[in-house]
Design a protein around this nucleic acid. Structure first.
Length: 855
RNA sequence: GGGCGCGUAGCUCAGCGGAAGAGCACCGGCCUUACAAGCCGUCGGUCGCAGGUUCGAAUCCUGCCGCGCCCA
C-alpha cells in the first residue's frame, strides 16, 4: 500500500497486468450456458475517435465486467468496420489510388510516397490490401484508447469487416440465401443516386424538402398533328417533372373521379412528342393533388413504379444512370417533329432538359399559365446531394418481409422475442418492419467491398443471362468474380460469347455487418467456438441504426439459424454538447477522448458515462468527470484508512461482529448489494452505481467517523474487533461493487490486501454479510442523525468540529432512544460529547440539543 | 402528417399514486492523526400549461405548448 495513494499511472500499470495475465481471456472450454457473449459494435476505424465511443462502449464494458464477476465466461471480442465508403475514400486520398476491379492483381504494387495528382488505378485485391495496411494503423489508435479506457475485451478475438474471414462468411451466408431462394436477382426499377452511381436501399433513404415547380401541361385528345396550340379537347395534368414527358406511359386518375371517368380507356397524345398515351384508373391517384390526374412516367417516383407494375405498362426510361437523358431518340417517339424535339434534349442533364422542355412547351402554347413554385419532400440518398432517380437495373435482393406478409409477421415476432433496453426502443423496430415496402437491395455499384460472389452465363450473342447464375464452391471463398473464374470455366472464357462474366457489384456494407455475430463467433470457420457463443447474449448499439444494423442482423440470423442473433439489445443514447446538439465531427464540437482520459483519469470518465442510462441522450459534462475523480480518490483514501487501522487478513470473520451499529451497517449494505445486482441484471448500470455511491459516501462520512475511536481500540477489545471485522467485510464488498465502473482504482485497492484480480473475484452475494443476531436498522439511522445534529450545532456556531460538547440532550421516541443507547459510546466519541441526556419525546420527533460547547 | 421519448432547484438528472430529492454551482464555516484534490452546514422548485380520475397526482388519463429522435 503506497504512502500517498494516487490515481496517476493506474491505467498503464493495470492495463499491462491485465494483458500479461490474460485477465479477460475467454475460456473456450465453457458451455453455452456458462457463457455471456457480446456482439460488440465494430467501430469505423476511418472515422475519428470521439467521446461518444467512450460513452457507449463503457456501458457495455460495465455489463461485461458484472457478468464476469457473476461467474460467466465472457466472450467479448472487438471488430473493426473497414468496409464501406468512409474507408474507400480514405484509402483513395491517402495513397492516391482508385479501385478498378477489371485490373489484374499486382503482387508487387507499392503506393507512391506521396499521392500524385492522378489517381493510380489498382485491382480490387490491391485496394483491399492497402485498406488493410492503412486501417491497421487506425486500429492501433483505437486499441490503445480502449485499453486505456479499460474495456475488458479479449483482444485475441478480433475481426475486420473487410478481412478474408469476414468476406468468406459474408459471401457464404449470401450464397446460402441464394440457394434457399431467400436472395434473388431481378431486373427492376431501382432508386439510383446519379452522383455515386449506385443503387440505394430503403434503409439509406431520407426525405428532404426540395424546391420544384408545378407545370400545368396539355395532353391532347383525338388525332392531331405535331404540337400546336391546344384546344377544347385538351386534358391538363400538373407535374413537377416536365422533362419526363418523353418517358410518359399513361395518365392516371382515381376510379371514382367523375371528372375523368369518361376518359378511362381512351388515349391522349403527349405534348411536344405526340406519343399516344392511355388514360387509366388507379386508386393510388390522389383526387386533391394537382389536377387530380397524374402523368405516369418511367420513373418519376415510387407511385409510378407501382402503376407501371400493377397496370402492366411498358418501360420507357429516358434517364441514364449518369443522370442524363438518353443520347439516342427513343423508338417510341415516331413523329418527325417529336424526334427533332427530342434531339434538343438528348444527352442533357435532368436540369437542362427541364429548362429546354419548358421553353418548348411555352413556344407551342402547351404550358398553361404560370409555373408555380412548390416545396415538397423528395427522396435522397442519405449521403448524396441530388434527388434520386429511378432506373432499371439488375440487382440482388434479400427477402426481408417487405413483400410478404407472413415473413413480415415473422420478423415482428422476432422483435417481440428480443429483450430491449430500454423497452420502448422496440417500437422503432416494429415501425420499421411494418413500413417496409420492398425486399432488401444488397447489391451496390461500387468497387470497394465484399464482391457479390456470382458469375453469369453469356449466351451465344455475348448477352448476359441473369437467369443463369454461376456460383463458387464453398472452399473457394472468398472469391472476387472480377478475377476468379467460376467452376467448370477457364479464364479465356471470360466475357466472350458462350462464356461467363463476373458480377461487377459489391454487397451492401450492411450485408456484411449484419453477420457480426457469425463473424465474431467464427461461424463455419470454428463451429465449436460458434456453438459456445451463439446465439449471443447482448447486442449493444446506438438507437439510430435499429432499422439498419439491428434489423438486418435479426433478419440474417432468422434466415440462417431460425433464431434471434442475441437475447438482449441495449440501445445507448448519444452525447450532446452543452447546447443540446448531437456531438459530431461535422459540427466541429468533438472533444478528443484520449485527452479526457488523461486529464480526469479513465475511471472518472467511465463514471460520467455510467450516469447515462440506456437509451437516454446525455450531456457532455466535465463536472461529472470531476465528481468521478473525487469518488475514485475517495475509494483510495478510504481503503488506505481502513487497511491502516488494521483489519484481519483473509476472509472477514463475521462472528466477531457483535455491535448493533456494525450489524445495522452490514444489513444496509446487504440491501445495496441486492438492489445494485438487480439493477445490473436489468442493464441499469446507472442505478447500480448511484446506489453504491450513495452508500459509500454515507459509509465514509458517518459510519467511519462513528467507529473510528472504537476501531482504534479506545474501548474494549470486542468492540474493536467488531468494528474491524465490519470495516473489512464492507470494504471487500464495496471494492467489488465499484469494480465494473471504476476498474482501475478498484483493482488498485483490491491489490493492497487481496489475492488475484478484483475483476475475477465473485460478485458480492447478499448472504455474505449476514450476521446471526437480530438487526435493528434504527441504531444506524439515529446514530447518524444525532451526529448530524451535533455537527450542525458546531457549524452554526462556527466552531471546529473537534470542539468538545459539554452536554447533549436527545429527545426521541422510546424505541429510537433504545436504539441510540446501543451506539452511544460511538456517538459520544465521534461528537466529543461529555454528558448525554436522553429524553422521551412526547410526539416522537427527534430533537438534538447541544449545550455548552466550549471553544 | 405518424410513432417514440423528454420538459422537476441556476446546471446535470433521479423519483413515476401516499409529506418535493441527489450531485454540481452559489453562499457560510471547519487545518478534523484516511482524504483541504477533504469535511460540515445553509440557501434554492405553483414538478411545461389546462382540464379530468382519486380521500390523495410530479407520478394515471385527455388536450394543448416546447424540445429531440425515428419514419412518412
Amino acid at each position: 500500500m503506497p504512502e500517498k495513494p494516487t490515481l496517476d499511472g493506474l491505467e498503464d500499470r493495470w492495463a499491462r497486468v491485465w494483458a500479461d495475465e490474460g485477465t479477460y481471456a475467454f475460456d473456450r472450454s465453457a458451455t453455452r450456458e456458462q457463457v455471456f457473449s457480446v456482439d460488440t459494435p465494430p467501430p469505423t476505424v476511418s472515422g475519428s475517435l470521439h467521446v461518444g465511443h467512450v460513452f457507449s462502449y463503457t456501458h457495455t464494458d460495465i455489463v461485461a465486467r458484472f457478468q464476469r464477476m457473476r461467474g460467466k465466461k465472457v466472450f467479448y471480442p472487438m471488430g473493426w468496420d473497414d468496409n464501406g465508403l468512409p474507408t474507400e475514400r480514405r484509402v483513395q486520398n491517402y495513397y492516391g489510388v482508385r479501385c478498378e476491379p477489371s485490373l489484374p492483381y499486382d503482387p508487387d504494387f507499392t503506393p507512391p510516397e506521396k499521392p500524385g495528382k492522378q489517381q493510380i488505378a489498382v485491382s480490387r485485391r490491391n485496394f483491399v490490401e492497402l485498406c488493410e495496411t492503412l486501417t491497421a494503423e487506425d486500429e492501433k489508435a483505437f486499441e490503445a484508447l480502449w485499453r486505456r479506457n479499460g474495456l475488458s475485451v479479449d483482444w485475441s478475438h478480433g475481426y475486420q469487416t473487410i478481412d478474408a474471414r469476414a468476406r468468406a462468411i459474408s459471401q457464404r451466408a449470401f450464397l446460402r440465401n441464394v440457394e434457399r431462394g431467400q436472395a434473388y436477382v431481378s431486373m427492376a426499377p431501382t432508386l439510383w443516386d446519379v452522383t455515386f452511381r449506385t443503387a440505394v436501399a430503403q434503409a439509406e433513404l431520407e426525405d428532404r424538402e426540395h424546391t420544384g415547380a408545378w407545370h400545368r401541361i396539355a395532353y391532347h385528345q383525338g388525332e392531331r398533328s405535331d404540337g400546336g396550340s391546344h384546344g377544347a379537347q385538351d386534358v391538363f395534368i400538373e407535374t413537377t417533372r416536365p422533362e419526363l414527358i418523353p418517358a410518359c406511359i399513361a395518365l392516371v386518375a382515381h376510379p371514382d373521379d367523375e371528372r375523368y371517368r369518361a376518359l378511362f380507356g381512351t388515349t391522349v397524345r403527349s405534348p411536344l412528342f405526340d406519343v399516344e398515351i392511355p388514360v387509366l384508373a388507379h386508386p393510388a391517384a390522389e383526387m386533391e393533388r394537382g389536377a387530380g390526374i397524374a402523368m405516369c412516367c418511367t420513373f418519376g417516383d415510387l407511385t409510378d413504379v407501382q402503376w407501371w407494375r400493377e397496370l402492366d405498362l411498358p418501360n420507357r426510361t429516358v434517364i441514364n444512370r449518369d443522370g442524363r437523358l438518353l443520347r439516342d431518340v427513343p423508338e417510341w417517339i415516331t413523329s418527325e417533329q417529336g424526334r427533332k424535339r427530342y434531339e434538343e434534349i438528348a444527352g442533357a442533364t435532368v436540369h437542362t432538359a427541364k429548362e429546354r422542355i419548358v421553353a418548348m412547351l411555352q413556344e407551342t402554347g402547351e404550358l398553361d399559365g404560370d409555373v408555380r413554385p412548390v416545396t415538397r419532400p423528395v427522396k435522397f440518398y442519405e449521403k448524396g446531394d441530388k434527388p434520386l432517380e429511378i432506373v432499371s437495373s439488375r440487382q440482388w435482393y434479400i427477402r426481408n418481409g417487405g413483400r410478404e406478409a407472413t415473413m413480415r409477421d415473422e420478423m415482428i415476432a422476432r422483435g417481440q422475442e428480443l429483450q430491449w433496453h430500454p423497452e420502448y426502443m422496440r417500437h422503432r423496430y416494429e415501425d420499421w418492419v411494418r413500413g417496409l415496402n420492398g425486399d432488401w437491395l444488397v447489391s451496390r455499384q461500387r468497387f470497394f467491398g465484399v464482391p457479390v460472389p456470382v458469375w453469369y452465363r453469356l449466351d451465344d450473342e455475348g448477352e448476359v443471362r441473369p437467369d443463369q447464375v454461376l456460383t463458387p464452391t464453398d472452399d473457394a471463398l472468398p472469391v472476387d468474380p472480377s478475377t476468379d473464374v467460376p467452376p467448370g470455366f477457364t479464364a479465356e472464357q471470360r466475357d466472350v460469347p458462350g462464356g461467363f462474366t463476373g458480377d461487377p457489384d459489391i454487397l451492401d456494407t450492411w450485408a456484411t455487418s449484419s453477420l457480426t455475430p457469425q463473424i465474431a463467433g467464427m461461424w463455419t470457420v470454428d463451429d465449436d467456438l460458434f456453438s459456445r457463443v451463439f446465439p449471443m447474449d447482448l447486442r449493444p448499439q446506438a438507437h439510430d441504426i435499429i432499422r439498419t444494423w439491428l434489423f438486418s442482423t435479426v433478419l440474417r440470423s432468422h434466415l440462417e439459424h431460425d433464431a434471434l442473433p442475441w437475447a438482449h439489445a441495449a440501445l445507448s443514447g448519444w452525447i450532446l454538447d452543452p447546447d443540446r446538439k448531437k456531438m459530431s465531427k461535422s459540427k466541429g464540437n468533438v472533444v478528443t477522448p484520449m485527452g479526457l482520459l488523461e486529464e480526469y483519469g479513465s475511471d472518472a470518465v467511465r463514471y460520467w458515462a455510467a450516469g447515462g442510462r440506456p437509451g437516454v441522450d446525455t450531456a457532455f459534462d466535465r463536472g461529472q468527470m470531476k465528481v468521478g475523480r473525487r469518488l475514485a480518490m475517495k475509494l483510495l483514501n478510504a481503503s488506505k484508512f481502513i487497511l491502516g487501522v488494521g483489519v484481519p487478513a483473509g476472509e472477514p470473520d463475521l462472528s466477531a461482529v457483535s455491535t448493533p451499529l456494525d450489524r445495522a451497517l452490514l444489513a444496509r449494505l446487504t440491501e445495496v448489494v441486492q438492489k445494485a445486482t438487480a439493477a445490473l441484471e436489468g442493464y441499469d448500470y446507472a442505478v447500480a452505481l448511484e446506489l453504491t455511491e450513495q452508500f459509500f459516501w454515507f459509509f465514509c462520512d458517518d459510519y467511519l467517523e462513528l467507529v473510528k475511536s472504537r476501531a482504534y481500540g479506545e474501548f474494549d477489545e470486542a468492540g474493536r474487533d467488531s468494528a474491524r471485522a465490519t470495516l473489512a467485510a464492507a470494504l471487500r464488498v464495496l471494492q467489488r461493487l465499484f469494480a465494473p465502473v471504476l476498474p482501475f482504482v478498484a483493482e488498485e485497492v483490491w491489490s493492497w490486501w487481496q489475492e488475484g484480480s478484483v475483476h475475477r473475484a465473485p460478485w458480492p452475494d447478499i448472504h455474505e454479510l449476514a450476521t446471526s443476531a437480530e438487526v435493528d436498522p434504527q441504531v444506524l439511522t439515529i446514530a447518524s442523525d444525532v451526529i448530524g445534529g451535533i455537527r450542525r450545532a458546531k457549524s452554526e456556531q462556527k466552531l471546529s468540529i473537534r470542539t468538545e460538547v459539554e452536554s447533549l440532550s436527545v429527545q426521541a421516541a422510546p424505541a429510537a432512544l433504545e436504539a441510540l443507547r446501543e451506539a452511544l459510546s460511538d456517538v459520544r466519541a465521534a461528537g466529543r460529547v461529555r454528558d448525554v441526556e436522553l429524553v422521551v419525546s412526547p410526539d416522537g420527533e427527534l430533537v438534538t440539543t447541544v449545550g455548552g460547547p466550549t471553544a
